[in-house]
């Protein structure tokens, strides 16, 4: 076993191809943006580049819009647990021996393969407050129940735009990447575990709780971490196409804010600062995941 204790020459050899590219195309630009977070870098001004110390960070702390958009981002992230649970649920059903599984899996995956723009245009039509199928259904429901309610204006309303985007997000994600990951994870669970547990007389729920869930630990950990990262950085494309960040900036997320500062207002120094504050937030979240994930998702690290 001594060969396994500190095997860095072998590790280096295995790591090298990836690590070189990683340095050039990821680590270096990331480092560069870190340096820029401490400057007044403005792509469109003739002013000389100056180091401004922590003043960008100080500005950010008192930037009400930043905190507002952080709130929007967290709000939209509320959809993530729902969508992960949905993916797991669908994966468990699909994993059973049912007819037409191939067809179902393909159908669930369709939203993920559909081009983003086409999807967003479609959902815009669905959310159309007057002619959209969603409100037609809601209004019919209200009429049937004799309720004096009016259906929300969805994307046009400050209060409903975020839930609308969240619904779309859940719908798109539930049968996509995460479901596939769970399916792959489920197929890696050794069947003897189930057999052993069944011999002990475990029921369906007990099987899931004590065999499936722990065995899916690494998968769940991966999904949670990546979803949290994606959620914090996301929200840009759909908001840009569907609402333009509106109404009244209620759908602007942090990712969108970076775009706005960096590529609409050309304050790249400040945009880098936002990115790095986001990085700190995400990093802390991941560390928490890492610490608690080991027990919660029964990880072996």
């Amino acid at each position: 076993m001594s060969r396994r204790e500190n095997n860095w020459p072998v590790a280096l050899a295995f790591l090298a191809p990836n690590f070189l590219g990683f340095l050039a195309f990821m680590a270096l630009p990331v480092l560069f943006s870190l340096v820029m977070a401490f400057t007044n870098w403005q792509m469109t001004e003739n002013a000389p580049l100056e180091f401004v110390g922590f003043s960008n960070f100080a500005d950010l702390l008192s930037d009400k819009r930043f905190w507002g958009f952080f709130g929007n981002t967290l709000y939209l992230m509320l959809g993530i647990p729902v969508s992960i649970a949905g993916s797991l649920f669908l994966a468990v059903i699909l994993h059973q021996r049912l007819r037409g599984v191939v067809l179902f899996r393909t159908m669930f995956y369709l939203p993920t393969i559909t081009s983003g723009v086409a999807l967003f245009i479609l959902w815009k039509a669905i959310f159309n407050p007057e002619f959209g199928p969603l409100n037609n259904m809601l209004n019919a429901l209200f009429d049937a129940l004799r309720l004096q309610a009016t259906a929300p204006e969805w994307l046009l309303s400050v209060a409903w735009a975020k839930p609308a985007i969240m619904i779309m997000g859940i719908w798109t994600a539930v049968g996509g990447t995460n479901m596939l990951l769970y399916l792959a994870g489920l197929s890696n669970v050794p069947p003897e575990l189930y057999e052993a547990a069944q011999l002990d007389g475990a029921g369906k729920w007990a099987l899931f709780r004590h065999v499936t869930w722990p065995q899916l630990g690494p998968t769940t950990f991966f999904i949670v971490v990546m979803s949290a990262i994606g959620g914090l950085q996301g929200g840009f494309e759909q908001a840009r196409v569907m609402t333009g960040g509106g109404p009244a900036e209620s759908t602007i997320t942090l990712g969108y804010y970076i775009y706005q500062k960096g590529f609409e207002e050309y304050q790249l120094g400040y945009a880098s600062t936002i990115a790095w504050v986001m990085f700190i937030i995400i990093f802390v979240m991941t560390l928490i995941n890492w610490k608690f994930g080991r027990s919660a998702f029964a990880m072996e690290v």
Partner: peptide
């Protein structure tokens, strides 16, 4: 963790340094 870290920096701000490289 360093690897994971780079995933956490939003791609938009690394676009320009990447472009320069």
């Amino acid at each position: 963790l360093l690897y994971l870290g780079t995933l956490m920096v939003p791609g938009l701000v690394t676009l320009i340094p990447n472009y320069w490289v």
